[in-house]
């Protein structure tokens, strides 16, 4: 459903150009969870932004359901690591309802509200509908962001280390919430993390040998990782 073919992206630092992504190809099928694992600074966020249409690749192509990704769409929602991705001037409920309104989901406010509440309930945020984001803990903020993303019923969630700034316990409960929600909605997820542990919890339990990703250097690295994971 999302397919990357020979994607390359470089940034210029002063006068120099340096490649961040080189020749990346892979695809994700409907309902799959793919974890992108890598040390910080290796280009995970860059890749995710390309997939979301926030930036364009230098060469290669990214296609979603057969059509080229050229700008962000509500059909693939990016969830960030930053806690302040909620709009501070809207309550939790309004934060979820507003994107529905923008995208003309449902005719009546009542329907939209019910829909939003359903997803807030799914991420276990009952009782905080009318709180403002600054009144929430970090974990609750990420839950709300997840609810906002899921409520739009996108085909794919692009999650950029969404639990990276949380303490271990909270992270675990959010991982559970995420997997439950995935179960209920069947959304495809690309989940970026630098934490192997987390990747193991989140990724589809059937670990497959990775399809070819990136350069040969990467492949070697991947092989190593793969053996570690499989041994477990």
């Amino acid at each position: 459903m999302i397919e990357l073919l020979n994607v390359t992206k470089s940034f210029s630092k002063g006068k120099e150009k340096f490649k961040v992504l080189e020749d990346i190809s892979f695809s994700v099928n409907k309902g799959e969870i793919l974890c992108l694992l890598g040390a910080s600074g290796c280009g995970k966020s860059t890749l995710l932004r390309l997939m979301g249409g926030f930036d364009l690749p230098d060469s290669g192509s990214i296609a979603m359901n057969g059509s080229k990704v050229s700008k962000p769409t509500p059909d693939s929602i990016l969830v960030f690591q930053e806690f302040n991705q909620l709009l501070p001037w809207k309550t939790v409920l309004q934060n979820v309802i507003y994107p529905l309104k923008v995208n003309h989901k449902y005719q009546s406010d009542q329907k939209r509200r019910e829909h939003a509440e359903k997803y807030l309930e799914m991420v276990k945020l009952e009782g905080f509908y009318h709180s403002f984001p600054h009144q929430l803990s970090g974990g609750m903020k990420q839950k709300a962001a997840l609810a906002r993303a899921l409520a739009l019923q996108p085909s794919i969630l692009l999650m950029d280390e969404p639990f990276g700034s949380l303490d271990a316990l909270t992270r675990q409960s959010l991982q559970t919430v995420l997997l439950e929600s995935w179960d209920k909605t069947g959304v495809s997820i690309i989940f970026v993390t630098h934490d192997i542990q987390e990747a193991m919890e989140i990724a589809d339990n059937t670990l497959q040998r990775p399809r070819s990703i990136g350069s040969s250097e990467y492949m070697k690295l991947y092989e190593k990782l793969y053996t570690i994971l499989c041994e477990k």
């Binding site: 979301g52 962000p72 769409t73 990016l78 994107p99 923008v102």
Partner: peptide, 8 residues
């Protein structure tokens, strides 16, 4: 980014 993502 959020604004662009939801289609504004």
């Amino acid at each position: 980014d959020v604004g662009r993502n939801i289609g504004l």
